[in-house]
């Protein structure tokens, strides 16, 4: 299933400001591809993803899915958010079944499929637990299981692991790669973490800031499953980091006071410090 983003721009006009968040973004995603959108906070990653999801409307330009224009949200493009967005009034299994219930799937069939996907994320033991009884990582697993039940060819993920501790994050990154290999979905994964992007993606798209746009793309052809600390990835990470650095600085300059300077305040660590991390 191919997604085409054609000339998409987005302005946010509020009482106090008029921001051009995205400016003429053009990009295409091939079926079964794992793409990471990488960029500094505030560069418009979520906005782009929301426009593709149909949650936000582009000011101009259009998004098509297999040639059909996207006009609103729908179960053919499931979204996973940074917060799990699970419903606290339902237990785990009912949360996983939610989408199928909306689609009118019969209860017995719903249960069977929900269990299958809960098994995929290793949480069948917790099927009757309530959401507040789960850890952050478990919640994201449930959200992932819920997203998988749609059997959609496209999965949109907006920094789903950003709020997790690094061990949990690593586990989930490995699981997600496995699930992707099994299901062959098109995954569009937004992150601001260079390491995460290189571990997960076939293609990393670096965004520029102010206004947001596509800056550069990197193909990543390293064997999977990839783990943090992979030597082949280190070289790529270094290149990507260079691209990102100027954008981070740009955002920082716009958001912070004028005396801010990236040389004095290095926000991104040197790549060499990162080599052994997570091993």
């Amino acid at each position: 299933m191919s997604i085409k983003v054609e000339d998409v721009s987005k302005r946010f006009i509020t009482k106090h400001s008029d921001t051009e968040t995205l400016s003429r973004v053009n990009i295409e995603f091939k079926p079964g591809e794992f793409i990471c959108i990488l960029g500094p906070s505030g560069c418009g990653k979520s906005t782009l993803l929301n426009i593709i999801a149909g949650l936000e409307e582009a000011t101009s330009g259009r998004v098509t899915l297999n040639g059909k224009q996207v006009t609103g949200p729908g179960p053919d493009r499931v979204v996973m958010f940074q917060e799990a967005a699970l419903f606290p009034w339902l237990n785990v299994i009912d949360n996983v079944e939610f989408g199928m219930k909306m689609a009118g799937v019969a209860p017995a069939q719903r249960r069977e499929r929900a269990l299958k996907y809960l098994k995929m994320v290793h949480l069948t033991k917790f099927q009757h637990a309530f959401i507040h009884e789960l850890s952050g990582g478990m919640r994201q697993r449930v959200a992932l299981a819920r997203a998988l039940t749609f059997d959609s060819e496209v999965l949109l993920m907006d920094e789903p692991f950003a709020a997790l501790d690094s061990q949990t994050k690593m586990l989930l990154q490995i699981e997600l790669q496995q699930i992707w290999l099994e299901t062959k979905k098109t995954i569009l994964f937004v992150t601001h973490n260079v390491e995460e992007a290189t571990i997960l993606a076939d293609r990393v798209v670096v965004m520029s800031a102010n206004p947001g746009g596509i800056k550069k793309e990197f193909q990543i052809q390293v064997a999977r499953p990839r783990q943090p600390g992979n030597v082949d990835l280190a070289y790529l990470m270094n290149n990507i980091m260079q691209e990102l650095k100027t954008e981070v600085e740009k955002v920082a300059k716009a958001e912070y006071d004028n005396d801010w300077n990236i040389q004095k305040n290095p926000v991104l660590p040197s790549i060499n410090d990162n080599l052994g991390s997570g091993v």
Binding site: G72, G74, P75, R77, A85, F98, G99, M102
Partner: peptide, 21 residues
């Protein structure tokens, strides 16, 4: 608002969103 957004991406709308979310 996240609940509503999530529900909308999962195909809920109109009466269904009122009743279920």
């Amino acid at each position: 608002p996240l609940y509503i957004r999530a529900a909308r991406t999962m195909g809920a709308s109109g009466f269904k969103i009122y009743w279920n979310v």
